[in-house]
């Protein structure tokens, strides 16, 4: 018996899926846009003076002014460069140490207790030491961000390598894979989904740590805009900087997720199925 799909029904289903694709991002905008509109209406109706929490229109004007003068781009670029450098270093070191401690029981016993103890130290506690060791300029900021990125990547990679299915590794052994082939053909693809999650967690912490880094005496960066707005009593500038953090942070996270997506099409997970429908 064969089954055929009615052309009209197929067209309707395509239209539905096109609409769904368009509606999906719109769905995520409903809450923030609704809150913003609500606050704008509340201020315009005189329910609040909007001085400490400026309405969206004032924030938008501040945003536009900062963009017109080129300040927004300069500060955003400085922050982005620090996050990129710190993220790169944190990912490189976290991946290397996570992989070797996950793979080797000896190295895990040797290194992991020290790294876990370091993880327990609050990030702010490092700032005075980093300033003393590395100075007040870029190096100390980048290193602080790298520390923030390092731990989720390290933990994610180590955990992922340790939890690779023994039975899958056995398939590699049965086909006589060498050590490097085992890493390339079995371990790397097996840890990739967890690695992407670790990268995204690390990136999120990178954005958190860049604020702490820019609080320690920066002359540019979105963190500097926050401090400047607080000292000069400009709440709209503070909120504009926060919105910029949210937009750029979300965009970088989306880039990582989108870059990884083609390599994870094989995944058989609940989330993947939900995203397809």
């Amino acid at each position: 018996m064969t089954t055929t799909v009615e052309p009209a029904a197929a067209g309707q289903s395509e239209r539905k899926s096109g609409l769904a694709r368009f509606a999906r991002p719109v769905l995520g905008l409903i809450v923030p846009v609704g809150l913003a509109l609500g606050w704008e209406l509340a201020v315009r109706a005189g329910l609040s003076n909007g001085r400490l929490v400026p309405p969206p229109s004032v924030i938008f004007n501040t945003f536009a002014e900062l963009a017109r003068t080129g300040e927004l781009q300069r500060h955003a670029a400085a922050t982005l460069a620090r996050v990129a450098a710190g993220f790169g270093i944190g990912v490189a070191v976290g991946t290397l140490l996570g992989a070797i401690t996950g793979y080797s029981l000896f190295l895990r016993r040797l290194l992991d207790p020290t790294l876990q103890a370091l993880r327990a130290i609050p990030s702010i506690a490092w700032i005075p030491l980093f300033i003393l060791w590395l100075g007040i300029f870029e190096t100390s900021k980048v290193v602080l961000i790298a520390v923030g990125v390092f731990f989720p990547v390290y933990l994610g990679v180590m955990g992922a390598v340790m939890s690779v299915d023994r039975k899958i590794v056995e398939v590699g052994r049965a086909f006589r894979l060498s050590g490097t082939a085992m890493v390339r053909r079995i371990l790397l693809p097996a840890v990739l989904p967890a690695y992407v999650i670790a990268l995204r967690s690390g990136l999120g912490l990178g954005w958190m740590f860049v604020v702490a880094a820019e609080f320690m005496g920066a002359s540019e960066g979105l963190g500097y805009l926050l401090v400047d707005g607080q000292q000069l009593g400009k709440p709209a500038q503070i909120v504009a900087a926060i919105v910029a953090f949210a937009v750029i942070g979300k965009t970088t996270d989306w880039i990582v997720a989108a870059a990884a997506a083609p390599f994870l099409r094989w995944e058989d997970r609940f989330g993947a199925r939900s995203e397809e429908t």
Binding site: K167, I168, E170, V171, R173, A174, F175, R176, I186, P189, A190, L192, W266, E267, D268
Partner: peptide
């Protein structure tokens, strides 16, 4: 003494590599 090219094995579960 180790897996050999002349010997193949099929396990109880298919053990297919999900990324291939």
């Amino acid at each position: 003494a180790a897996p050999h090219e002349k010997i193949g094995i099929i396990f109880q579960e298919p053990r297919l590599l999900p990324w291939l």
